[in-house]
Amino acid sequence: MSRSLLSHLLAIPNSSPRITTSALSLSYQTNPGSILKRNPQCAFRCCSSVVNSQPEALSSTPPVKKRVVSGVQPTGALHLGNYLGAIRNWISLQDTYETLFFIVDLHAITLPYEALQLSKATRDTAAIYLACGIDISKASVFVQSHVRAHLELMWLLSSSTPIGWLNRMIQFKEKSRNAGDDNVGVALLTYPVLMAADILLYQSDFVPVGDDQKQHLELTRQLAERVNNMYGGRKWKKLGGRGGSIFKIPEPLIPPTGARVMSLTDGLSKVIANKIKRCKTDSFTGLEFDNPDRPECNNLLCIYQLVSGKTKEEVVLECQGMSWGSFKPLITDALVAHLQPIQMRYEEIMSEPSYLDGVLSEGAAKATGIADATLNNVYQAMGFLRQ
């Protein structure tokens, strides 16, 4: 295996994986990485949203699927936690919902970044989506900046967003305090408005969120209600619109808890083994879930459960009497077995750039059709003269 994908999966962060949805993880996960076959079967947390895509179906037609929109940032390293907490969950979502998954490259520039790496990281991330099991016959994959409606709606929403709402955002306070005012761009303050645009653009019903993104989702909900009250209803109807609400009010969707883990980049088995060997352990006897005094133990058992496909009860029976010396080779082998097919698929995808370009182009076209319908309604309700 090459180093490019598995090292993205193998670096140990200090916090739980976040979900993003810019509509989405709208916790935005960071990530570059890497796999091909047009029928992804592998599985691995940005943000997802759910929406009714068309009027309620007649009894003679299939049930209408709700829509899920979710995304991951193309910067930093794609952690195993991102995979286990977000992307892996997307695999099952695409069988139940109409799904759109995108790379939130516009969010990647809110803090200093390497311009030369952005394009490459974006392609790598898209390839990882497919490698991990996103099936383009069921889901659309696209790049955020390829759908211009994201930026247009952000500007329109900005006119209705009180500055006090943004000043209260905890992440802005923390990051600006650490970097200093002279090193912080306006985008760091206003990116929650872009997140709101990401969600509202696709009329999302639900948004999977991590703990650090709940405040941003609440701002999105408040902003949707504010715009609906300011411009919707009879006011919109007088301008020739349908009236009623312009935006759906999204609800939070809490994903299954993922493990706090490693970045997924270096592909060699020995890299995985070295990472696992360096994982912090404790001096307790035996292994157990859910002991608040043993967070490292719970974390590694959760990883093993997820990559082995076993139930929690099966893992308890198998591992409760084990020492760390016995358990670490076990989880290492399970990780290697789980990640190798993804690595192979990533390499196939990256070897066919025209295929990946086609996937992204097709995904952006579908997303643009949905987004433009929402955007045109907003322009109309806000009173703009249209061409």
Rank of each mutant, 00 (worst) to 15 (best):
S2N: 14
S2Y: 12
H8R: 10
L9E: 08
I12L: 13
P17V: 11
T20K: 01
L24W: 02
L24D: 07
Q29D: 06
P32D: 13
R38Q: 12
Q41T: 13
Q41D: 10
C42E: 13
C42A: 14
C42T: 08
P55D: 05
K65P: 00
Q73T: 12
Y83N: 08
L84E: 06
L84Q: 08
A86N: 07
A86Y: 00
T96N: 11
L100M: 15
A115E: 09
L116D: 15
S119K: 14
A131Y: 07
S137C: 10
Q144I: 10
V147F: 08
L151M: 10
L153E: 09
W155E: 04
N167I: 00
I170H: 02
S176K: 01
S176Y: 02
A179Q: 03
V186I: 14
L189C: 03
Y191L: 09
V193G: 05
A197M: 03
L201I: 02
G210D: 10
D211P: 06
R221W: 05
R221G: 06
A224S: 07
V227Q: 09
Y231S: 05
G240V: 00
R242L: 05
I246Y: 05
T257V: 05
R260T: 04
V261R: 00
S269C: 06
I272G: 02
I276H: 05
I276G: 05
E288T: 12
E296I: 10
N298A: 14
N299T: 08
C302H: 09
I303M: 10
V307P: 10
E313K: 14
V316A: 08
V316W: 08
Q320N: 13
G321C: 10
M322Q: 12
P329R: 07
P329Q: 05
I331C: 13
L335M: 15
V336D: 14
A337G: 08
A337S: 15
P341S: 11
E347C: 12
E348H: 14
S351I: 00
Y355L: 15
S361A: 14
G363Q: 05
T368F: 03
A373P: 00
L375K: 06
N377L: 03
A381K: 02
